[in-house]
Amino acid sequence: MSQLAAELLEPITPPSGQVVASEAIQGRGPWQLAWARLRRDKVAIGSSLVIAVIALAAIFAPLIARLIGHGPDTQFQSTGLSPQGIPVGPSTSFFFGTDDLGRDVFIRVIYGARISLLVGVIASGMAIIVGVVVGLAAGYLGRAADTVLSRLMDVILSLPFLVFAIALVSVVGPSLTITVAVIAFFSWASVGRIVRGQVLSIKEKEFVEAARSLGAGDLRIMFVEILPNVLAPTIVYATLLIPLAIVFEATLSFLGIGVIPPTPTWGNMLSEAMPFYRVAWWFVAFPGLALVVTTVAFNLLGDSIRDAFDPRGSRSS
């Protein structure tokens, strides 16, 4: 749609009497409009489906394990390995082949999804909450609070992620909790920056002045007036942060400082597969593919959500 047409559309709403009554009274807000646009977007539907399938697989992993008759740690010394001790390729008994210990790659990839999604959602959820609160405070309160919080975010964003993670893990030892904590710690600052920027422009709007002239306090202004307006970009960022967190987790696990074996994750599976990529491509390919498909799906969904909230920008122009 052209810019011009969009401008023309905006100031004119149909006179109140002419709209169908039921629709007229239940107003269509910005959220409903975005939702309606999202439902028309084929990319959004496709990527949501992919994410849904992966999420379902992760949630029902034990059920799938029972269906196919073995779990992620079951080792098939005889059927799962060739006489030379080399992993066997995809077959009807092992859809994705086996790994170097004769374990089923298929069920391990599915169990890996649990970790990946868990870490992705929890770490980015924590990052969003902390980032939104800090960003709101920094942007709205300004002055000293802004200076302190903004510098803090700058410092965190300039810390070398891997060096810090390796150092930390070598002190406290690797675990799932530490992985989540490290990822959240390194992600909230970028959320905070985005939110702060938004707040800076929104707090100058007249509706904030209007609230203040009614006698609203700072907390009410921050959470009732400003927060709903930064939520849209935050949700967009959250969908982009999840795949980032998943990749972070994979990186840490790959390096052996994330989630440790035998718990399967896509990262540590890739790490284990590295010596075998010449003889057992499936061992590398399937966890890698799972990682790529998941991150791409989340990224596409994030783009679609952004378009849904702001139909004028982005793709068309």
Partner: peptide, 11 residues
């Protein structure tokens, strides 16, 4: 005229 998602806008 412009075509918009909501129909044809006759400017």
């Amino acid at each position: 005229s412009f075509s918009t998602p909501d129909g044809v806008l006759q400017a």
